[in-house]
Design a protein around this nucleic acid. Structure first.
Length: 419
RNA sequence: GGAGAGGUGACGGAGCGGUUGAACGUGCCGGUCUCGAAAACCGGAAUACGCGCAAGCGUAUCGUGGGUUCGAAUCCCACCCUCUCCGCCA
């Protein structure tokens, strides 16, 4: 949520930061918001004065009523008039606030100043295999571990069915990642609801602007989570946390459901873009001053997964015009997939500064007795399964068609080779 | 799904429609006392918005939203949530 006080105090800076997102319509939206905010403050001031008048009157009236048994008619008439004026201004104010809130929810987060204008690869790990070999869907089909036609029969395209060692591999990956993050990186494991209310998913920023990308259930108006970020970040909505317990991190496995509206035709083969997939997500909460360092640490936790899976990858910082609505800075982790010859985004690691915290009203008292302030929230995939499986199959495929399992994963999959 | 009970501050728990932001208790913070601590005593402490350089002032908030009234935590309506019992069920 945009900070209206900041917009009021430094309109030029706010506009300049948002302009970097490259969305022309934002200028007009901000104009409207500023005008509404102005009106709102004028009306509030008027109303406060009238209400102060009413409160004073109520006190003297109480004594009058006690002394005389009842209030004089002319006093009642005067008070009623005052009350009517207040009621009418209140409804005017309510309408302005409703409009203002609705518009403010469409303003994205401001990119941090160190975000570049062009996508920039910061570092890479491992030696990417030369492009070649089979794409993952051919490998998987031959091994009988992935059944896309039957998934389509059940739910449509983009709903893969993993079979046998494929299902085992997915389950193993989930357990491996959760164990890694909870045992070695200090995360608390949570299993949240996979469906959430409208206001919850508004808190993390997917609503109201991106309703078309979500699956919605009837008749209860619950939304299937597109990422565990949604339920886990909202775990502390409407709370004031004890700042001395921060930073804190949660790791959660959930399936993720995405309609991918408008993405038809892109990455349609195999596992590259699907409507349902598994993911282990990392979510962190911290005080404002700590968030840059927390972001680096978080990204490192996601990288560890790829290193243990022996998957060459690179880390890129996304430009201001190419990351999520609620984010202030995003790193993408891309694993190399030689079969399709692409770097596959398997994790996105973002800091949201106080943007989600404002929307979901998540605060912390830095020390006992101090004023609460909005926390900073961050999250990263740690990591998403389908593309990781694709990279894994393509990277570790052997000439005989089998696929070796990296040592760290062997205990979880129960074999060192899928054949 | 049926029947009932209830939602007040960090927590527990009061609150005849009229100076109630809200008694009391616990917890918390500061102080006195103590070699320290405990106990006791004294004092302090909610959140948001607006105005103000500031001290401060004003307004709102007793689940949420409406309504009645000169005046609502207190009365009425709707909704949300929690709990108990019954039914159904992995």
């Amino acid at each position: 949520m945009i900070d209206l006080k900041l917009l009021r105090a430094s309109p030029a800076q706010v506009r300049a930061a948002l302009a970097r997102r490259g969305d022309q319509s934002l200028t007009r939206l901000l104009d409207e918001i500023e005008a509404l905010d102005m009106k709102r403050r004028t009306l509030t001031a008027q109303l406060d004065t009238l209400k102060a008048e009413r409160n004073d009157a109520a006190k003297t009236d109480a004594q009058t009523a006690k002394a005389k048994g009842k209030l004089p008619d002319d006093v009642i008439v005067a008070r009623r008039k005052l009350g009517e004026r207040i009621t009418s201004l209140e409804s005017e104010l309510r309408q302005i606030e409703t409009t203002l809130d609705a518009k403010a929810l469409f303003v994205p987060n401001s990119p941090l100043s160190d975000v570049p204008d062009e996508v920039t690869v910061l570092r890479s790990w491992g030696t990417p295999a030369p492009k070649g070999g089979k794409p993952h869907w051919e490998i998987a089909e031959r091994l009988g571990i992935l059944d896309l036609p039957r998934g389509a029969k059940l739910a449509g395209s983009g709903f893969p069915v993993l079979v046998g060692a494929g299902a085992r591999l997915a389950r193993g990956l989930i357990n491996f990642m959760l164990d890694l993050h909870t045992r070695e990186h200090g995360y608390i494991e949570v299993e949240p609801p996979f469906m959430v209310r409208r206001d919850v998913i508004t808190g993390t920023g997917q609503l109201p602007k991106f309703e078309d990308d979500l699956y919605r259930t009837m008749p209860d108006d619950l939304f299937l989570v597109p990422t565990a970020e949604v339920p886990v970040t909202n775990l502390h909505r409407e709370e004031i946390l004890d700042g001395t317990t921060l930073p804190k991190g949660y790791a959660a496995y959930t399936p993720c459901f995405r309609r991918e509206a408008g993405a038809a035709g892109k990455d349609t083969r195999g596992l590259l873009r699907v409507h349902q997939f598994d993911k282990v997500e990392l979510v962190r909460f911290c005080l404002a001053a700590d968030s840059p360092a927390e972001h680096e640490k978080l990204t490192g936790h996601a990288e560890t997964v790829l290193q243990k899976l022996e998957l060459p990858y690179r880390v890129a910082v996304l430009p201001a015009n190419d990351f999520g609505f609620a984010a202030a800075k995003t790193y993408d982790l891309e694993a190399w997939a030689p079969g399709v010859g692409q770097w596959l985004e398997v994790s996105s690691s973002s800091t949201y500064t106080d943007y989600q915290a404002r929307r979901a009203n998540i605060r912390a008292r830095p020390r006992p007795g101090e004023k609460p302030e909005f926390v900073h929230t961050l999250n990263a995939s740690g990591v998403a399964l389908p593309r990781t499986i694709a990279a894994l199959l393509e990277t570790h495929q052997q000439s005989d068609g089998s696929v070796t399992v990296p040592p760290a994963l062997v205990p979880y999959v129960g074999t060192d080779r899928i054949a």
